[in-house]
Measured scan of single mutants.
Amino acid sequence: MTEYKLVVVGAGGVGKSALTIQLIQNHFVDEYDPTIEDSYRKQVVIDGETCLLDILDTAGQEEYSAMRDQYMRTGEGFLCVFAINNTKSFEDIHHYREQIKRVKDSEDVPMVLVGNKCDLPSRTVDTKQAQDLARSYGIPFIETSAKTRQGVDDAFYTLVREIRKHKEKMSKDGKKKKKKSKTKCVIM
């Protein structure tokens, strides 16, 4: 069974824990209790493949930012979460993405942009803004509501699919490099 290491990042209060708990335990946590770091595991079937999701729910508070490099190193894919009623959390996505790329030393890291709290009427981040940002990053965008469960499975499952595509691409690139290195030079 394939294991996928997913990391949920975003500013404090955007609903990272609520999304994760909704996926794992099928219930909505409405009281806000700032996370330092929590880890969850769940076995699911995605596109006919049974897999184990190892999900790291991270601290959004700035005082825990020193811990970010460590979990970013171990993560295979990242859910970059903002709240649709919090423009600052949307603007912060850029910083999370840049930090992930720096730590992973790669421009090509599996990510999904997630606009959470889409059940709320007080939207300050337009869907088109988020779609445009995701398009500019070359990553999928999904709106979710941890409260109603809308888009929750889709967000995590899409990230797994992005990781699969990335692994497939990397193995193809690896095979191309191996083929090239088999060419021999004969000096007579």
Rank of each mutant, 00 (worst) to 15 (best):
T2V: 08
E3S: 05
E3Y: 07
Y4C: 13
K5P: 13
K5M: 08
L6G: 04
L6D: 02
L6T: 08
L6N: 03
V7P: 09
V7G: 02
V8I: 07
V8E: 05
V8C: 09
V8K: 04
G10M: 02
G10P: 01
G10A: 11
A11M: 12
A11V: 12
G12S: 11
V14T: 10
V14E: 11
V14W: 09
V14K: 13
V14R: 14
G15D: 01
S17Y: 01
S17N: 00
S17C: 01
S17L: 01
A18Q: 12
L19H: 11
L19F: 10
L19Q: 13
T20P: 00
I21F: 11
I21P: 00
I21K: 05
Q22C: 04
I24R: 04
I24S: 04
I24F: 08
I24H: 07
Q25L: 11
Q25N: 15
N26M: 09
N26D: 13
H27D: 15
H27R: 04
F28P: 02
V29L: 12
V29N: 08
D30M: 10
D30F: 10
E31P: 04
E31R: 04
Y32Q: 02
Y32V: 02
D33K: 00
D33I: 01
D33T: 00
D33H: 01
D33P: 00
T35V: 00
T35Q: 00
T35D: 00
I36H: 00
D38T: 00
D38S: 02
D38A: 02
S39P: 00
S39E: 03
S39C: 15
Y40W: 01
R41A: 11
R41Q: 08
R41E: 08
R41Y: 11
R41M: 10
K42N: 10
K42F: 07
K42R: 09
K42L: 11
Q43K: 13
Q43W: 06
Q43G: 12
Q43S: 13
V44Q: 14
V44R: 10
V45H: 10
V45K: 12
V45S: 12
I46D: 15
I46V: 13
I46M: 14
D47T: 09
G48R: 09
E49K: 11
E49M: 12
E49A: 10
C51Q: 13
C51N: 10
L52Q: 14
L52W: 11
L52P: 15
L52A: 13
L53H: 04
L53Q: 09
D54C: 02
D54F: 02
D54M: 03
I55S: 05
L56F: 00
L56D: 01
D57Q: 00
A59Q: 00
A59I: 00
A59M: 00
G60M: 00
E62P: 06
E63G: 03
E63W: 02
Y64S: 00
S65Y: 05
A66D: 03
A66W: 04
A66M: 06
M67C: 01
M67R: 00
R68Y: 01
D69C: 02
D69Q: 03
D69W: 04
Q70D: 15
Y71S: 01
M72W: 00
M72A: 02
R73L: 06
R73K: 07
T74V: 11
T74E: 15
E76F: 06
G77M: 11
G77E: 01
G77D: 02
F78S: 02
F78V: 01
L79C: 06
L79Q: 00
L79K: 01
L79W: 02
V81R: 01
V81Y: 03
V81L: 09
V81C: 10
F82L: 11
F82Q: 06
A83I: 02
A83W: 03
I84H: 14
I84Q: 14
N86G: 10
N86K: 12
N86M: 03
N86W: 02
N86V: 04
T87V: 11
K88T: 15
S89R: 10
F90L: 14
F90E: 05
F90K: 12
F90W: 14
E91K: 03
D92E: 15
I93T: 07
H94I: 15
H95L: 06
H95Y: 06
H95N: 15
Y96W: 15
Y96P: 02
Y96T: 04
E98V: 02
E98P: 12
E98L: 02
Q99W: 03
Q99H: 08
I100T: 03
R102E: 10
V103E: 10
V103F: 14
V103Y: 06
V103Q: 02
D105V: 04
D105G: 13
D105I: 14
E107H: 07
E107D: 09
E107G: 12
D108A: 11
D108L: 07
D108N: 07
D108R: 08
D108C: 09
V109G: 03
V109S: 04
V109T: 13
P110D: 02
M111K: 02
M111N: 02
M111G: 01
V112Q: 02
V112H: 01
L113T: 07
V114D: 01
G115C: 13
N116V: 15
K117S: 14
C118G: 08
C118E: 06
C118V: 09
D119M: 13
D119T: 15
D119K: 06
D119F: 12
L120H: 11
P121K: 08
S122N: 12
S122Q: 13
R123F: 08
T124Q: 11
T124C: 09
T124A: 08
V125K: 10
V125E: 13
D126P: 07
D126S: 09
D126A: 06
T127P: 05
T127D: 13
K128F: 08
K128G: 04
K128R: 05
Q129C: 15
Q129V: 07
A130I: 12
A130N: 10
Q131H: 06
D132T: 04
A134P: 11
A134T: 11
R135V: 08
R135D: 14
R135G: 10
S136T: 08
S136P: 11
S136I: 06
G138F: 10
G138L: 15
I139Q: 04
P140S: 10
P140T: 03
F141C: 07
F141T: 03
F141N: 13
E143D: 09
E143G: 13
T144A: 09
S145C: 11
S145I: 13
S145W: 04
A146S: 06
A146F: 01
R149T: 15
R149V: 08
Q150T: 12
Q150R: 07
Q150G: 11
G151D: 05
G151R: 13
G151Q: 07
V152M: 10
V152H: 11
D153W: 05
D153F: 06
D153Q: 08
D154Y: 05
D154Q: 08
D154L: 06
A155E: 06
F156D: 02
F156L: 05
F156V: 06
Y157P: 09
Y157A: 13
T158Q: 11
L159H: 01
V160N: 08
V160R: 11
R161T: 14
I163N: 05
I163C: 13
I163W: 06
R164N: 11
R164H: 14
R164Y: 14
K165C: 05
K165F: 12
H166P: 05
H166F: 06
K167C: 07
K167F: 07
E168V: 07
E168Y: 06
K169D: 14
K169G: 10
M170Y: 12
M170G: 14
M170S: 12
K172Q: 06
K172C: 14
K172G: 11
K172F: 11
K172H: 12
K172N: 08
D173V: 04
D173E: 05
G174L: 10
G174V: 06
K175A: 14
K175I: 14
K176W: 08
K176S: 13
K176F: 05
K176C: 09
K176A: 10
K177A: 12
K177C: 09
K177V: 04
K178R: 09
K178S: 09
K178E: 12
K178H: 13
K178G: 10
K178V: 14
K179L: 13
K180T: 15
K180C: 11
K180L: 06
S181M: 08
K182D: 15
K182Y: 11
K182C: 05
K182E: 11
T183Q: 15
T183V: 04
K184D: 15
K184C: 08
K184Y: 01
C185L: 07
C185H: 09
C185Q: 15
V186C: 11
V186N: 07
V186D: 15
I187F: 08
I187T: 08
M188R: 13
